[in-house]
């Protein structure tokens, strides 16, 4: 985020969303790879974390990311029926949807997204990132407040 151009811009304009993406090893991470080798462009707002399956993502990971200031969290996995571990993504869906409901109470539910992206969908990957970045831009910065240590 620090490499924002040093032109005279206000702080608001410099702000670029900071998105954390969990991508499953077997589909979505390969999809992201394909987007890379195919030289598809997408905004540099996303930090991809490889997990073995979308069901590896615990609600507490998502909450922690948001707590520590991530503007958005994306979970990407194989399409339903394609999960390497048979029904991992079905479980993930229940979990993520429940987390979304819990986040609704805090008004953060739009910052969480679950997508199915297969290994051959490099284009889709780049589009999802573009879309999500735009959405987060509209929502603005994560409202969590900085708390000083030893406060």
């Amino acid at each position: 985020m620090s490499e924002a151009p040093a032109v005279t811009t206000t702080k608001e304009e410099c702000w670029v969303p900071n998105i954390l993406a969990f991508a499953c090893n077997w589909c979505s991470y390969a999809g992201a790879d394909l987007a890379g080798v195919s030289r598809l462009q997408y905004p540099p707002t996303v930090k991809i974390l490889r997990v073995m399956c979308s069901s590896r993502v615990e609600p507490s990971f998502i909450l922690k990311a948001l707590k520590d200031g991530a503007d958005g969290v994306l979970i990407a996995g194989c399409h339903i029926g394609d999960c390497h571990y048979i029904d991992g993504n079905k479980n993930a869906e229940i979990r993520i949807n429940n987390t979304k409901k819990a986040l609704e109470k805090l008004g953060l539910d739009k910052r969480l997204r679950l997508e199915w992206i297969s290994a051959s969908e490099g284009l889709r990957f780049s589009e999802v990132i573009k879309e999500f970045t735009d959405e987060i831009k509209k929502l603005g910065q994560n409202p969590v407040k900085e708390v000083k240590v030893n406060e």
Binding site: S60, L63, K67, G107, K145
Partner: peptide, 17 residues
């Protein structure tokens, strides 16, 4: 327990208005 999901939730909400 539960990988601290309830603790995280409480911490997250404590940082919001």
């Amino acid at each position: 327990a539960h990988l601290g999901v309830f603790t995280e939730f409480a911490e997250l909400s404590s940082k919001l208005d």
